[in-house]
Design a protein around this nucleic acid. Structure first.
Length: 646
RNA sequence: GCUGGCGUAGCUCAGCUGGUAGAGCAGCUGAUUUGUAAUCAGCCGGUCGGCGGUUCAAAUCCGUCCGCCAGCUCCA
């Protein structure tokens, strides 16, 4: 057997090395720069420590900080370093889990002291101190039993619990030691702590052990780290920028919506400007739906509780509904509707249906009410009253897939129009926990198959999330991130074989027999509130003209030109353009600044020059003075921009 | 719902270890009549989130409730 191995690099070149050589030595042999920058190595597709020996012919790829997998190793190692620092400061600390996440890392710890901002600073300082010691991360493989003994001895009962959950078959586990700190970990890690240079601990929060609210709540510290100061600064800068896009802040500044205790938590009020935005979106979707054969309907905001007992929602979601309204001296109870479907089913049931009638597509911007937990409420993205751009479509079995494809097409059109390029698509399927779901497993399997086939036909890139289905059926969810990187579900398509049975929905087939339609629940926006919340952040409040509540501000240079300005303003208004006339007694610089901060796209400025020439000057948001042109030319341009939804 | 943080004028915020509130912006009034991101002056504006308590005295200390923020849990 040869004591040489052949190492192949990403560029296709290969080179011989001694058997058992570490990835680090290979990197060194290429260049000191690479050895310095490499954080870990991907050997035949597996991420490994740089120190781990390579014993056979391999394909190797060095991971640096700009690789996602490299970052993961970097941040994971930082979480160990943080745990080490915590152990130094709070020797009684017990450790939960501490993974790398999308932006940084966290560690869950159990200590008796409540952590504060100052404790974070202290931990941070200690981390820097430990990093300077440049301790090596040393991996040790050992049997599960001795690992259990080790952590029992250390008093780390959470680690012991993790070990007891590790697959019976795997006898070997690994621990990593760095200075005086040892942690259960499958790795891989950096060579040493000195690689971790710039650290920021971001926030503290509670988190239930193993994500179960019946367990003890641990303290979770989130943080991030970088090899270069500039990267940390840029990251913090981006956080600041993101805060400026926050829809709660912009919603207030741009006077789009209001949430006030006087009305109630999670009950948003649409201000005039926000209402323009919302109605514009609604009208846009109405038109897209009209083209696709949807029929608008309108239903009441409350309904007899029996509707929801029939549907099965009431028992499932009793706790997250506003309590029923009981009529005095009457046995009847009404529910603020938590969803629109049962109402729409009544429309279907209102007369006999033939196979020729299907598909039937009822659409409604229906406002629903759900009593969300107080800790969940969040601006417009999580509220207690929201309006679903809902539709329930009743289709024959043979029409189902085609109809789902049509819905996906509509969602793609809508997201495309809004410029949402970065959204994820998730197929939400059931898991094995039968209690969570209603209906026959055979129907579920069929529905999941249909959904997957439709998603493939429409060339969606998706991932499957088991256990994320609704209780009545699987769904396709379209999710978008907000300014702070939190994922929100917007559009959704759900297949439902169960409600049709519960409500005894039927149609007469060509064979003269009764058949059961399939129901599709779908909403491209999802909820108007959430969608607009995310949209505000997406555009940072700088809406495309067709959506902008104020499209043009008309600003006379001084009050001497107010009359001419008013005339221009009236003509814009007659042309259907949403404008405001700024006749305040202020200097022009003041007014320009004001409209710039309000993110109004066009300012029309008129003074001596314009009045005598009979034209206008245009200033564009962020771009400045665009020169002068005739009013009619300007109106044509604006009309084009609105029509083309640029 | 849970853990932690926060709650002072419409907005953004100051107010040290207790001595009963302050700025800028916004608003109003007046002067100015202005040329592409803040003209000047004056005025108005707060039961310091609510309720209890400690104290001669509470925005400040304690308790409790409410709300907001971050995360966890939940999400038809």
């Amino acid at each position: 057997m040869s004591d040489k191995i052949l190492i192949t690099f990403p560029d296709g070149n290969s080179k011989e090395f001694d058997k058992g050589i570490s990835a680090f030595r290979i990197a060194e042999s290429i260049s000191p720069g690479l050895a310095e920058a490499a954080l870990a190595a991907e050997v035949n597709g597996f991420v490994k420590d740089l120190e781990s020996p390579i014993n056979s012919d391999s394909v190797i790829n060095f991971l640096k900080f700009d690789d996602e997998k490299g970052k993961e190793v970097y941040w994971h190692s930082t979480s160990h370093l943080m745990a080490h620092a915590i152990q130094e400061i709070y020797p009684e600390a017990k450790f939960g889990v501490g993974p790398a996440i999308e932006n940084g890392f966290y560690y869950d710890i159990d200590i008796n002291t409540g952590l504060t901002e100052e404790s974070l600073k202290a931990i941070e300082d200690k981390m820097i101190e430990l990093s300077k010691k440049n301790n090596s991360f040393i991996r040790q493989d050992l049997s599960k039993d001795s690992a259990v003994k080790f952590f029992e001895n250390k008093g780390d009962n959470y680690k012991v619990e993790i070990l007891s959950g590790i697959n019976e078959n795997s006898e070997q586990v690994s621990i990593y030691k760095e200075g005086d700190f040892t942690d259960l970990c499958r790795g891989p890690h950096l060579l040493s702590t000195g690689k971790i240079k710039f650290i920021k601990l971001l926030n503290i929060s509670g988190s239930y052990w193993r994500g179960d609210e019946n367990n003890k709540q641990l303290q979770r510290i989130y943080g991030i780290s970088f090899p270069k100061k500039k990267m940390l600064d840029e990251f913090l800068q981006r956080l600041e920028e993101a805060k400026k896009r926050d829809h709660r802040k912009l919603g207030k500044e741009l006077e789009l919506f209001l949430i006030t205790q006087a009305v109630g938590s999670g009950l948003p009020i649409w201000l005039p400007k926000g209402t323009i935005l919302r109605e514009t979106l609604e009208n846009y979707l109405r038109e897209e739906q009209r083209k696709r054969g949807y029929e608008p309907v309108i239903t009441p905001h409350i309904g007899n509780i029996n509707l929801y007992k029939t549907s099965g929602h009431y028992p499932y979601y009793k706790d997250s509904q506003f309590p029923p309204i009981k009529l005095e001296g009457d046995k009847e109870e009404y529910l603020l509707k938590p969803m629109n479907c049962p109402h729409h089913f009544q429309i279907y049931l209102s007369k006999p249906r033939s196979y020729r009638d299907l598909p039937i597509r009822y659409a409604e911007f229906g406002t629903v009410y759900r009593y969300e937990q107080s800790g969940e409420l969040n601006g417009l993205t999580r509220v207690r009253s929201f309006s679903v751009d809902d539709s329930h479509m009743f289709v024959r079995e043979d029409q189902l897939k085609d109809e789902v494809c049509k819905v996906i097409e509509l969602i793609q059109v809508v997201f495309g129009q809004m410029g949402f390029k970065e959204f994820t698509t998730q197929l939400s399927f059931r898991d094995n926990n039968a209690e969570k779901y209603g209906g026959d497993i055979k129907l579920w399997e069929r529905a999941q198959r249909e959904i997957r086939e439709a998603a493939d036909l429409m060339k969606l890139t998706y991932h499957v999330a088991e256990g994320e289905a609704a209780f009545y059926g699987p769904k396709i969810d379209f999710m978008v991130k907000d300014a702070l990187g939190r994922k929100w579900q917007l559009g959704t398509v759900q297949i439902d074989y169960i409600m049709p049975e519960r409500f005894n929905l039927e149609y007469t087939g060509s064979d003269g027999q009764k058949h059961r339609p399939v129901v599709i629940h779908r909403a491209p926006f999802g909820s108007l509130e959430r969608f607009i919340g995310v949209l505000i952040e997406h555009y940072a409040g700088e809406f495309p003209l067709w959506l902008a509540p104020v499209q043009v501000a008309v600003i006379p240079v001084s009050q001497n030109f107010a009359e001419y300005g008013k005339d221009v303003f009236d003509k814009l208004k007659d042309a259907g353009i949403r404008g405001e006339f700024d006749e305040r007694n202020e200097k022009i610089g003041y007014k320009i600044r004001d409209w710039e901060t309000k993110k109004v796209k066009y300012m029309v400025i008129v003074g001596e020059k314009e009045q005598s020439a009979g034209n206008i000057s245009v200033r564009k948001h962020k771009l400045g003075d665009m020169g002068s042109l005739s009013l009619s030319e300007f109106i044509d341009n604006i009309h084009d921009e609105i029509k083309n939804k640029i």
